[in-house]
């Protein structure tokens, strides 16, 4: 399949109701630095929510999250605060 589109294009086909008031993912930058978990988060998230800046900080594009829970399952204790978005917010699959 050669025309799947990049991740941004793929995510754009889902419907999202973004909860601007309450991000549902928070990263403890210090804990990530200490545990070296940054690269793991970056590559394990199927939606490319995490990226690492030149300064080593992890950026979180939480609006594109598909709410699977993978990052939380593999992240070292204390690096992530992650919960489902508030009721009604977040990703909406049309097919599933």
């Amino acid at each position: 399949m050669d025309d799947l589109g990049n991740l941004a294009e793929r995510l754009a086909r889902n419907s999202y109701l973004v909860d601007e008031a309450q991000p549902h993912i928070q990263v403890d930058q210090e804990a990530v630095r200490r545990t070296g978990a940054g690269p793991l988060l970056v590559r394990i998230c199927p939606a490319h929510v995490y990226s690492q800046g030149v300064d080593g900080r992890i950026e979180v594009a939480w609006a594109g999250c598909l709410e699977c829970g993978t990052c939380l399952a593999v992240a070292p204790e204390g690096t992530l605060t992650w919960h489902y978005p508030r009721g009604g917010f977040g990703v909406g699959y049309r097919y599933g």
Binding site: C68, A73, Y95
Partner: peptide, 25 residues
């Protein structure tokens, strides 16, 4: 992406329209 690009699979999907990309545990 590697799986969908595999010759055995991409042939089955040729000409198709990507409708959704998702993940779940």
């Amino acid at each position: 992406d590697h799986f969908l690009d595999h010759p055995a699979i991409s042939r089955q999907l040729a000409g198709g329209t990507p409708l959704e990309y998702g993940c779940h545990l």
